[in-house]
Structure formats: structure tokens, C-alpha cells
Design a protein around this nucleic acid. Structure first.
Lengths: 392, 392
DNA sequence: ACGAAAATTTAGATCGATCTAAATGCTGCG
DNA sequence: CGCAGCATTTAGATCGATCTAAATTTTCGT
């Protein structure tokens, strides 16, 4: 076990390392086809690898003259930094994971754009992982991100995510910002819209229009945003000493569930007593579209016979007829803030927990029947008829 | 330079490496707080690092018994694979870059979901980068992805992207699949919808409904999809020996641009001769929404007075009143196919160039005035009144 | 039971950066 | 002139995996 231990595993290193500093064949980037390494830059610039490394990291230690020489060499050789290698030694990958409960909603596109925008300016890059509202996939995604050595996470938790799932998924062991949806019992930083205040605002608006019997459609699921919304809804009612109208659950949060829930509810109410609410607050815009469809089917015109409001101000909201009254949850802003907060957290892991709540803005359109009610058809040619939703 | 060369840079390695195989303090994962390495697993399982590495990569070389022992050790210690380290040596990061010209369109959310879906099952992870239709940002994003050592790229090129920009951006030096938008002169794999066939199909449909004067709104930009669309539009017209109606450009591809373009066009036509087209083919659905708004303002009802069709079948299309006749470009399918093709290309860099064209499907709704035309109001209570667009 | 072939395991170099501690160069001061 | 003190630069170990070639063990035919 001692004698024959010659150098092993050489893969023509001679050919690679023989490149003398001065007489490179030509100035062609990537001479030979292999990737240019820091070492090559060092040789070419006539300095040590350590110095090149310092230049790369913009250290103030290197002399201006030397720095220039090195930068010239980098440009000349077409050097591309290898972050995997750097990461291995330094531990910082300048990479974050973006775990989304569901990618295919207009909200998340905006949200992701906001995140990317901020990360880009800081030289970070995001991994994207879609959990598709599935706990198992979420676990897998979290694990893979860990394997890739992300510096931190932005998590929009899937429904029914419990604190221990996140803890197990390494969210507790690295910088992690929850966005859009809180997870009870998991004390991470949080950025999200103020669903409660929005619901309060929009319910107030309905009350100010004279509505007294206000229903709530959508809900059931165990996600924090529902709790917050219901709380805001009730807050507004309480302030005006009103009792809540019927609260109707909804299997999933999408248009057809909203439709189904509303249809069943209306059929029941109409057949039984004929005492239907004069206004309906919906879990969000998408549910509201379904609800309006159901009203329509029962011959009720949203905005005239029954006021309908949503939450989110998705692009379709202004496009729908009647245009939907709702409040914005500024997903792009939420994304930006989440990214900024995560970067702060990465820089200072021990700073106190932070929470950023983005205030809602009411967007009054036709579906609530504001301005006029009974006379206008509400569906054709609405009063404020400007092009909206373009550049947003 | 010879004498004093003692071991340097030791950061308490003794404390870390002293862990004997047998007597670990306890079975707690992450004993000590440091990350568990492959080496720790090897020690714990009583085998060499090389063997553990083989187990990790599911090599058939290791005996089943040994494999079991190692896997047990991994589970016991809570080992997490470090891909950065692996990448450094092996060159494969199991990471791909997803470069999007613009994130905030419903299409790209679906597209991204399709990509993520396929990559996930293969254990890959995607970096996301939004170029926001800006060439400079696109360059930066491509560079950063290269720095992170992605194994390949899926690129939805920003407008005006020229082949040399992609070549410079390393797209030529690594597996790269273009999606949605071709880039002329850049011979990479391509996956995209068949815009030409779709336009042909939908124009044929209009012709079959009796339209003879058909306009085209949207365009100007130098992206391949426009060329393809125009070609399909003209193909259908030629087959029926019809002349093209007016072709109206559009500054940007969004709703307000479509609105502005149509408004100006209609004003001009109405004032001048009063000879407006009976049908309008729009660049895409979003432009069509703007166009319908403009028609509406001029007192023209889309689907009754003028037929309007779009392209993409975005979620809003079915929601709009009148519901938009369009054709689907299946972004999710395109995403899936792009990811699959990229993985194939990564596995076999030398295989011949491939191109996957996803066929369009016509979606006939109300805006083309199909079925009936003049009598039904087309806006209220359309015939096929089912909830759509929910689960999609 | 022996040696060849097959199966399995392993030592140690290696990937390309960063890190530490030390070496070197350069001032200016007594 | 010698040396403290500062500014710069550098050698070589190191991060945690994979890779190659060789070592070792097992299987098997005769």
C-alpha cells in the first residue's frame, strides 16, 4: 500500500497548463474550445490567482493599475465566472429559490416579475419551483433547492401547509420569506397584501351604497388569506352593526367552483324564501366571475340586481362586463418587497423578524352598481369607458 | 521558498474529522450544526467516499447490500446532496435557464408551468430570467445563467433579437431551445405553436361565414410570429382569390395599442368612405380586446356588425362579452415539449436539429358572429352558456 | 484448489473558485 | 541606514463532490 503510487487521474493536464503567459497563439477568446478559467486570466495578466479573485470581488486591496491589467485580460480571453466553483468554497451562491403554490394565475406572473426585477439588479438569480398546490411536490422542490445551495427562499406556501412541513423543508434553517400566504406557527418574515383591510374597505363601500344583506362566497380552505378576508368582512359589518349574510363555501378557488357554489346557493335561496342578499362579497375576482355567471343564469344582472365585488384586480376584472369592482393586491409590489426583504435577511440573518403589509386600493367599477343602479343596463356601454389594463 | 511550508488554512479540521465511525454522540441529524457531507456518510456507513458517490448516482456497480447500508446512513444523518460541488467536477448541474422575453402574460405562466412540470420529473431545476423585452437585460440574463453553469437554455427571445446576439450570449455554445418565437438565422431547436396554420384556419372560418373584406390589426414588430401569422392570413385569402383588406400596424402588442390602432383606423375609414371591413383578424387576443373596445365606441357591435377574431385563447377570451373566437396556441404543451426537447439535446448534443410545431385548435365563440349574426344581441346571454376556464 | 475473469470497492487527483496567513514592496521616520 | 507600518500580492489548503485507474474480493470453470 506504499510503493506504487504514481500520479493518477491526469487528463492531459500538460496540454492545458503549458500555455505560457506571453505567447498565446492568438487573442481569440476560448482558444482551444475549453472554458477559460480564473487561472488562465491570472497567467495572461501576469499575476496570481488570488489577485484575480480579488479583482473579481471588487476588493479595494488591489492597486488600480493591477486591476486594469486583470480586467483587460478577462475581457481579452472572454472569461466567464464560475459561480458553482465559487459557491463551493464561499458558501454563497447568489441564488434564491422561489417556491410557488401555483404558477398559473395572473397574480403569480406579476409577483414573479417583481421578484426577478429586484434580484436582477443585485446580481441574484432565482430558481423557480411550482408546487402545484401539492404538499409532496412542495417538499421535493424545497429539497432540490437545498441541494442547489440557494442562499434563501421566497415561499408562497401551498394550501394546508403546516409549520412543521416548512421546518422539515429547511425553511427554518436558512433565510426564508413567506409571501402572499401566512403559515400559522411559522415565524418567518412575511410580505403580503392587506387582505383584511381590503375586504373591510370594499364591504364598507357596499354598505355605503345601502346594502344591508351581504353574503360572502368562497372559502373553506385552510389558508391564512381566507381568515384575514373574513375578519375584514366582519369588521366592516360589525362597525355598522349589521349581521353577516350567508357565508357560502367553495370547493376550490376557481371560476367553476365559484359558479357551482353560487348556483347551488341561489337555487336554494330562491326556491325556499326568495330572500336573496343584495350584495355578494367574493373570495377573489376569479370566484366573482363564476358567481356573476350564476347570477346571470338566474336572470339576475350583476351590478343592477345584485352587487358583486371581488379581490385582486386581475387583468380580466376591467375587461369583464359588467366590469368588476374589486381591490388591488399589487402582486408586483409584493414580489419586489419580498425579494428586498429576503436580500436583507440574507445579509443579516439575525435581524429581528419583519413583516411588510402592502395596503389595498379600492377599484370601483360597475359590478357593485355604484353611481347608478336600476336604470342603466349596466352590461352595455358602461359609463367610464376608457381603455384599461394595457401597460399596467 | 522551500523551508517553512507548514500546513496552512486549517479551520479546526481536527474537530470535524475526528468523528469516529462507530461512536457518534447520538443519531441526531446534523450533529454539531454543520452540514453533513458525503464523507460523513461514508465514515458512518463504513465505506469509501467513492462508494457513496456511486450510490448517489444509482450506479449498478455497488452491491445491493452495500447500497442499503449507505442509504441507511444517508437517511440517518439527514444528508443533503451538494450539487454545486458535484457540478464543479462533473460539469453537469442539472439546471437549465429559462429566459423569457416577458413574464407577465397569461401565456408565459402556462408555458413556464409546462416546463417546470417536465423538468421536475427529471430532477432538473430552472432558473428564471425575465428580459422584459429588453436586449440589454437579455444579455445580462444569459451571462448570469452561463455563470451559474446551466446545462442548457430555453429561450423565448425578446423582440428584435438578432442571431448574433444569441450567439454572443452563449446560446450557440450550449444546448439551447428556442420557444414561441423563432430567431432568423439562428439554427437552434425550436418549439412553438403553428401560428401560420392557426391564422389560416381562422381566416378560412371567416371566409366560410361570408366575409370578403377582412382586415388585419396588429404587427409592426420584427418578431417571427408576426411574419408567420401574416403568411397564414394571406394563404387563406389567396386560396379563395380574395384581396387582403387593410393591414393596420400597432405600436406595442397590448390592449391599449390595439384599441388606439383600431380607433384611429375606424375614424379614418368611417369619415372617408364608410367602407369598413366586415371582419378583423387581430394579432392576438389581447389586441382583439382593444379592437372590440374601439368598435364598441363607434357603436359597432363585435360579432354582429363586425366579426373579430384573435389568437392564443387566453383565459379572458371566454370571459369577454362577446366571447372571443380565437385559436389556441397551447402554451403549456409548448412548454412541455420545449423542456423535453432540451433534455434530449442535453443528452445528445450532436443529434440533428429538431423542430416541434404544436397544431392550433379553433375555438369558435361569439365575436365572429358564427351560427347567427344580425338578430341575436350577441352580447347578452350567448347560446353556449357554460362555465369555462376553470381548471384548464 | 487454482487462476482467470467478473464484480465491487477504493485511493487520490481533480474541478475552479475562495480563504488564510504569510511574503513582499514601499514609505517615511528617527 | 534600519525598521516599523502600511499597501499589495501570493502560496497553498480548502470547499464537497466525481473521476480514473488500480486494488481487492468474489465467482467460477476445470
Amino acid at each position: 500500500m506504499e510503493g506504487a503510487k504514481g500520479p493518477q487521474g491526469r487528463r492531459l493536464p500538460a496540454a492545458r497548463d503549458a500555455a505560457e503567459p506571453a505567447d498565446l497563439p492568438d487573442e481569440a477568446p476560448l482558444a482551444g474550445g475549453l472554458r477559460v478559467r480564473l487561472k488562465d486570466v491570472a497567467v495572461h495578466a501576469g499575476v496570481s490567482r488570488a489577485t484575480v479573485s480579488l479583482v473579481l470581488r471588487k476588493s479595494p486591496l488591489v492597486k488600480a493599475e493591477t486591476r486594469a491589467k486583470v480586467e483587460e485580460a478577462m475581457a481579452g480571453l472572454g472569461y466567464v465566472y464560475n459561480r458553482s466553483a465559487a459557491n463551493l468554497r464561499s458558501g454563497a451562491s447568489r441564488t434564491v429559490g422561489l417556491v410557488l403554490c401555483e404558477i398559473i394565475t395572473p397574480n403569480f406572473a406579476q409577483f414573479t416579475a417583481g421578484i426577478d426585477e429586484v434580484l436582477g439588479t443585485e446580481g441574484y438569480m432565482a430558481f423557480i419551483g411550482n408546487a402545484a398546490e401539492d404538499a409532496t411536490r412542495q417538499r421535493e422542490v424545497l429539497l432540490r433547492m437545498q441541494e442547489h445551495g440557494v442562499d434563501g427562499l421566497v415561499v408562497v406556501a401551498s394550501e394546508n401547509t403546516r409549520a412543521d412541513a416548512l421546518e422539515e423543508g429547511a425553511c427554518a434553517r436558512m433565510p426564508c420569506v413567506l409571501a402572499q400566504r401566512r403559515v400559522e406557527g411559522f415565524p418567518a418574515d412575511y410580505v403580503g397584501p392587506d387582505y383584511g383591510a381590503g375586504m373591510e374597505l370594499i364591504t364598507e363601500h357596499l354598505i355605503s351604497l345601502g346594502h344591508r344583506n351581504i353574503a360572502f362566497i368562497g372559502g373553506v380552505r385552510r389558508i391564512a388569506p381566507l381568515t384575514e378576508r373574513m375578519a375584514g368582512f366582519h369588521r366592516a359589518l360589525r362597525r355598522h352593526k349589521l349581521k353577516s349574510g350567508p357565508v357560502v363555501p367553495c370547493a376550490v378557488i376557481d371560476r367553476s367552483s365559484g359558479y357551482a357554489a353560487a348556483r347551488e346557493f341561489l337555487a336554494r335561496e330562491l326556491l325556499a324564501k326568495g330572500d336573496i342578499p343584495s350584495a355578494i362579497v367574493c373570495y377573489n375576482d376569479v370566484v366573482a366571475f363564476g358567481v356573476m355567471l350564476a347570477l346571470d343564469e338566474h336572470g339576475l344582472v350583476p351590478g343592477r340586481d345584485v352587487a358583486v365585488v371581488g379581490c385582486d384586480d386581475v387583468d380580466e376584472a376591467g375587461l369583464h362586463r359588467p366590469a368588476l369592482t374589486t381591490f388591488t393586491t399589487d402582486p408586483r409590489v409584493v414580489g419586489r418587497e419580498a425579494a428586498r426583504l429576503l436580500l436583507r435577511r440574507i445579509a443579516h440573518p439575525e435581524r429581528p423578524r419583519e413583516e411588510i403589509i402592502v395596503p389595498p386600493r379600492l377599484v370601483i367599477r360597475q359590478s357593485c352598481g355604484a353611481g347608478k343602479a336600476a336604470d342603466t343596463p349596466a352590461v352595455r356601454r358602461p359609463p367610464a369607458h376608457r381603455p384599461t389594463g394595457g401597460a399596467r
